[in-house]
Amino acid sequence: MTTTTPAVRTTYRDAMRAAIRDAMQRDPRVFVMGEDIGAYGGCYAVTKGLLDEFGPDRIRDTPLSESGFVGAGIGAALADMRPIVEIMTVNFSMLALDQILNNAATLSYMSGGQLHVPLVIRMTTGAGRQLGAQHSHSLEGWYAHIPGITVLAPATVADAYGMLGPALDDPDPVLIFEHGTLYNVEGELPVARDPVDIAHAAIRRPGNDVTLITYGGTLPKVLAAAEELAAAGVDAEVLDLRVLRPLDADAIITSVARTRRAVVVDEGWRSGSISAEISARIMEAAFYELDAPVGRVCSAEVPMPYAKQLEDAALPQVAGIVAAVQEVLRTGG
């Protein structure tokens, strides 16, 4: 996307770091907690340099105690601090699932609205780096199942920067999923550094023939597929969900009702996935607008393999997305 506002070119990682730094400078209640975020500089170097700038109280290295420090983030948030908890990778967040589900997502409701948990949890998600089956899954769709939390999946540099501020302003827990293949991606960061909205999907490429619905790490692949399709005369619209919970159903339905065809591209497993939810929503709200059944491109239902050719085969790829779109275009009226 081109932008008319002045912007600088930077990486997703640096944009995320800038967002953390700005938030910490703006609000003394903000602090960051996680494994190796300080002295080591962050597993993915997002927090590199922040320890020197803000000191060990606010850039707080933790022991390997995911449940303990996520729960501590919840407690600090209950006491009106604004913690940012970093979990190295989504698979490790399983160790903190009790705190995320049973406490963070639940305390407001269970207390009749008395308690608020203004907590932000950031974590790396996704495959593509040959890290095997315990560092590579895309479980954000699971989290999107849980009432009481907001689930964000920034796919662009602007969102990597812009989503953190409003996430911290939210009085309830917000989970931010950062796809590991995006950290080195460069993009445009508006100089004004305005916050972005964390409620709506965004059309990353307008089109008329089919709607490609995706988010996070698969957005670049879907955009590449759309370019290939354009060369073949297919004008695809690319919708970046940005927010997995609550889903921006209006944006999905509006686009699909116009293009009359949809393919959902999701790095999660197919069964019981966010792609299944999106497909069901389209069926419920736009069944009679469709010219073809909704298509889906998901990861193979295997624990993520290490070997490059197997991992590539397990993940949504440009060729598979193009093929799925062509299939959807072939069927129906």
Partner: peptide, 10 residues
């Protein structure tokens, strides 16, 4: 228990 730790941390 982790919540108590967080309240105390604050």
């Amino acid at each position: 228990l982790p919540i108590a730790v967080g309240l105390a941390l604050a």
